[in-house]
Design a protein around this nucleic acid. Structure first.
Length: 992
RNA sequence: GCGCGAGUGGCGGAAUUGGCAGACGCGCAGGAUUCAGGUUCCUGUGCCCGCAAGGGUGUGGGGGUUCAAGUCCCCCCUCGCGCACCA
């Protein structure tokens, strides 16, 4: 290619002055300091007591601060620049607080069990242990190159046998506990046996516990455990070959991981009784410094509703009631029919063989039976109609139920219940808008005051009785009569006063909703018809997976059921299985087949189990079968932060004394902490998964006395995602974003136009940017600074490689202010700084300190830019940098760009690391200004500015403003109707 | 549908309790250095009118409160997230 000009060298470093801060110099500095930090154990954090209490720096007595990242899942593709955003932020904060005198715990482990690691292993045909180890090594290398100040001794992988041994131990703690509703906490299972012996809880047929046979005793005790086996409908994902927790299934009924269809199938699975903790998980959110939106997501997921449970007698079944849950007991008089979920067990009992033609004519003015029979009962008697409707409802997938217009369907079952308030006969229906999984799976329908019931009632010609008088505005707007709900266009769900709601014993007429709820609830309880009740959306946590790459359960089986292994038999090591692949299928009716079942020699095991005397085993060596399911990915991540505290302890998950030391301290407002971790940073995607599960485990451990804190994470910050441009070609396929070129605002890939969109950085969008490329082109300090400068930590932000030069230039100028680019000589001098410089310096210190404490790193960096730009003009042209500025500037840069700060610190003559130096404090003398510039407005528009001594009074402000020529001119001939002076802030003349 | 959050220059973003909108960075324009490109440094840069002085206008749209509104109130629009027949 013949160029008219000499071709420039691609590597400008060749031509740069020898001591310029280029990528090459940055890399050299960074490698040097990373090695030194490691050799000198700079980030080894001492515990006050126990195993890691060696403390050469004498920092163990300082106040403790625990700064935590959501640890990474080491994927096969390595890091992209979106991953370390949070890690950099916590590192800056941790370094900042070390300089403020805290003993800071900051470490990084790896969440390495679970589906993605196994999927990756399947794809590459390599054993997951091998790929996991490789991936962790890659992550460690990439994170080390970022200069993160982690304690290298405290970063376990969840796949380490010495780690998952304690995951299994915690499972045993959960298994060996029951929830004492009276004490509102979990207690060891041995105390349950005492309570059973004392007769506190019912036993089968009221036989005293000690007279039950051992097997019955065992089953009774097992039914109370916090970890239990249940045969229940679960989320079965044949394409993944495993069942999934509710939290792992998306709203449209697919797997969060892989987006495969999920089916509800009854299967025998391990469950954890998280529902026992629903109230505490909800209430204790108050004590946490989390964003309202995350708290809200957890509240919604737990879904507590308070109301009443009411029993409705069924006609013709003297011994049978249908129990419903309602949040609106005040509308009970308006219940004109009932609905059961199609799967409700009572449906088979109450469905009649014939349609009740003759009876109906007496009770209902026009015979509505044809409408009630609907589509499904039109030609069939009730049992067939019910059966057909059930098939229809079961065939709907979650997706169909969601996308379909919510037309109400259902069928009358031929039977009647009685409204207990007024004795009215009310027909019983089944309909799929009532869900078996919520409440009691049955509702009382009040069509006048519930929109769903209203729609159903219209569809099936059911009576609509108004028992709340709507507001006059509502009635006027809908041109409706207060008393005749048949004229209403929709249900009235707002507040109002009761009407048509009285019987000889109780009247709600004239009462407002809140009062009516109270009065009717009292009546229900007095009459033995109901009681206050609370229900939750939260379900127990499905805890087993039919996959290989997870923690084995410390459970074996005999003929009668599961038996927990004693602690002394831990760890149960995951056997090395050459054929680890899951059995996957497209068939919804396929059965789960755990891969571990193939490890025949491992599954069948002879043990001499000690067992408690009441449990019916413990009679010498016997053959047992091991549990072949594994734990879900979330198990290891539920407690890793606890292991960081005491990672080498072989006698305990964590030494309680060590946990107490790190738990001490206060919240930002000075009140005591509820949570162990002071600052937790991670993505919002774990709002109802990891963050709920970990809180649950922590509370169990708290109840059992293993930790002193009732919550794991005191303060939570969700970092925003880094977005990046992705490009789609005309076939809709993503093209490599790195190869796209822009011309005149349009984008081209290999000469063909492509369209731009923004999305999360990742392999599938082909827009990932690798940190290694940026280390090479700019250095790690530049990357750190750029990611912190892009915007507020909790906001998503678009990646722009082009913008990086800005922060790189900052570091270059910083370096040049300290070091002569040509000779390498120092430009720092002992000359004192002038007043202006001092004022700027101390203002900067003041602002940077506050910004860093508030995690506002972007504005802290902007302040440092300003100071540095000012110094650049001071130093250039042969000037010098006063040491009294150079020292605090270096200290302020240290948390953000630690490598270059260490280098400058050393060049300032210090032998030791900058890590534990004190962060600069502003000198109040230099913060107070003598004069301040105040804007002068006329009718709210700024017309001039005047300089005024600080502390001047309003009169002085007015005088100064009037003396300003331009203001004087504008005020000439005008009438000042009003004058506002906010001293030091503003002067505003209001003129006619 | 319900709930939550957000809309500020060409771009990323600043702006205690209402008190100078646009800090800082990118980009762009001009200049210095250079044979030249790049680099580095300086100056300017919301928009409109104007040679300038200056004036007008401006924080998604509309209205309101106030001496003063990005900030408070009401209505609406757009985008993002969460939930979705939860009785």
């Amino acid at each position: 290619m013949g160029s008219p000009w000499p071709v420039a060298s691609p590597d400008m470093a060749d031509e740069a002055p020898p001591q310029r801060y280029t990528a090459a110099l940055a890399n050299e500095i960074e490698r040097k300091w990373q090695d030194r930090w490691e050799e000198q154990h700079v980030f080894d954090t001492p515990n006050r007591t126990g195993l890691l209490s060696e403390d050469p720096r004498h920092i163990a007595d300082r106040p403790h601060l625990f700064v935590l990242d959501m640890f990474p899942y080491p994927s096969g593709t390595g890091l992209h620049v979106g991953h370390p955003l949070g890690y950099i932020a916590t590192d800056v904060y941790a370094r900042f607080q070390r300089m403020n005198g805290y003993n800071v715990l900051h470490a990084m482990g790896y969440d390495a069990f679970g589906l993605p690691a196994e999927q990756y292993a399947v794809q590459t045909g390599t054993h997951p242990r091998t790929t996991t180890e490789q991936n962790i090594a890659t992550y460690r290398r990439q994170l080390r190159a970022l200069g993160l100040g982690h304690d290298p001794r405290r970063g376990p992988a969840t796949t380490d046998v010495q780690y998952y041994r304690w995951t299994q131990w915690i499972f045993l703690q959960i298994y060996d506990s029951w929830y004492d509703e009276d004490a509102q906490r979990a207690r060891p299972i041995a105390t349950l046996v005492q309570e059973l012996r004392a007769g506190r809880f019912p036993t089968p047929d009221d036989v005293p516990f000690d007279e039950l046979d051992p097997l019955e005793q065992r089953r009774l005790v097992d039914s109370y455990r916090l970890a239990y086996e249940a045969y229940a409908p679960v989320n079965w994902c044949p394409a993944l070959g495993t069942v999934l927790a509710n939290e792992e299934v998306t709203g449209d009924g697919r797997s969060e991981r892989g987006n495969f269809p999920v089916y509800r199938r009854p299967l025998r699975q391990w469950m954890l009784r998280i529902t026992a903790y629903a109230d505490r998980l909800l209430d204790d959110l108050e004590s946490l410094d989390w964003s309202e939106s995350i708290k809200l997501m957890q509240r919604n997921w737990i879904g507590r509703s308070t109301g009443a449970s009411v029993r409705f007698p069924v006609e013709g079944h003297d011994d049978l009631d249908i129990e419903v849950f309602t949040t609106r007991p005040d509308t009970l008089f308006g219940a004109t029919y009932m609905v059961l979920a199609p799967e409700h067990p009572l449906v088979d009992v109450i469905t009649t063989n014939q349609w009740p033609d003759d009876q109906l004519a007496n009770d209902f003015a026009s015979n509505p039976l044809d409408a009630w029979k609907g589509l499904f009962g039109a030609t069939d008697p009730p049992p067939d109609a019910v059966s057909r409707y059930r098939d229809f409802a079961a065939a709907k997938t979650d997706l169909e139920r969601q996308t379909e217009t919510r037309e109400k369907t259902g069928v009358f079952v031929g039977a009647f219940a009685v409204n207990p308030t007024n004795g009215a006969r009310i027909p019983i229906f089944i309909a799929d808008y009532v869900l078996m999984g919520y409440g009691t799976g049955a509702i009382m329908a009040v069509p006048a005051h519930d929109q769903r019931d209203f729609e159903f009632a219209r569809e099936f010609e059911l009576p609509i009785v108004a028992v709340i008088r709507p507001t006059d505005e509502w009635l006027a707007e809908h041109e409706a009569s207060p008393n005749d709900a048949t004229t209403w266009p929709e249900a009235y769900v707002g507040d109002g006063v009761g009407q048509n709601s009285a019987n000889p014993e109780v009247s709600l007429d004239g009462l407002r909703v809140e009062d009516a709820k109270r009065v009717i609830s009292e009546w229900l309880e007095r009459s033995g018809l109901g009681r206050p009740a609370v229900t939750y959306k939260l379900r127990d946590w499905l805890f087993s997976r039919q996959r290989y790459w997870g923690e084995p359960f410390p459970i074996v089986y005999d003929d009668a059921g599961p038996i927990a292994l004693p602690e002394s038999m831990l760890p149960v090591v995951l056997p090395d299985l050459p054929d680890f692949e899951p059995v996957t299928s497209d068939d919804p009716d396929a059965q789960p087949e755990p891969p571990l079942a193939r490890a025949v020699d491992w599954v069948e095991v002879e043990l001499d189990l000690p067992g408690p005397e009441w449990a019916g085993y413990g009679d010498g060596p016997r053959t047992y079968l091991r549990e072949t399911n594994t734990m879900p990915q979330w198990a290891g991540s539920c407690w890793y932060y606890l292991r960081y505290l005491d990672p080498t302890n072989e006698d305990a998950m964590v030494d309680p004394e060590v946990e107490r030391a790190w738990a001490g301290g206060t919240r930002l407002d000075g009140s005591p902490k509820a949570g162990l971790v002071d600052l937790y940073v991670g993505g919002v995607e774990h709002a109802v998964l990891h963050l709920l599960y970990a809180r649950f485990w922590h509370k169990v451990l708290f109840d059992l006395g293993h930790v002193s804190t009732k919550e794991p994470f005191q303060r939570l910050v969700n970092q925003g995602y880094i977005l990046a441009a992705a490009y789609v070609d005309d076939r809709g396929a993503y093209v490599d974003a790195a190869l796209v070129e822009e011309h005149d605002g349009r984008y081209f890939f290999e000469g063909k136009p492509v369209t731009r969109e923004f999305g999360k950085m990742g392999k599938s969008l082909r827009n990932a940017v690798a940190p290694d490329d940026l280390y090479r082109d700019y250095g790690a300090d530049t990357l750190r600074l750029y990611e912190m400068f892009m915007g507020p930590l909790d906001k998503e932000r678009p990646w722009s490689t082009a913008d990086i030069v800005g922060v790189h230039r900052f570091l270059q100028r910083l370096w040049r202010n300290f070091v002569d680019e040509g000779t390498g000589a120092s430009r720092v001098s002992d000359e004192p700084a002038d007043e202006e410089t001092r004022r700027l310096l101390h203002r900067t210190i003041d602002a940077v300190h506050a910004d860093m404490a508030a995690l506002s790193f972007n504005t802290a960096i902007a302040r440092l830019f300003e100071l540095n730009n000012y110094l650049t003009t001071l130093v250039q042209g042969g000037g010098v940098l006063p040491r009294e500025v150079a020292v605090p500037l270096t200290l302020m840069v240290a948390p953000l760009a630690p490598h270059v700060a260490e280098e400058l610190w050393a060049r300032l003559g210090h032998a030791d690391t900058i890590t534990y130096e004190e962060f600069p404090q502003p000198d109040a003398r230099w913060l107070v200004e003598e004069r301040v510039e105040v804007p002068v407005q006329i009718n709210g528009k700024v017309r001039a500015r005047v300089e005024i001594p600080v502390g001047a009074d309003a009169a002085a402000h007015e005088a100064a403003a009037r003396a300003e020529p331009r203001i004087a001119e504008l005020l000439t001939g005008a009438t000042v109707r009003q004058l506002r002076v906010v001293p030091g802030k503003i002067v505003n003349f209001v003129v006619a």
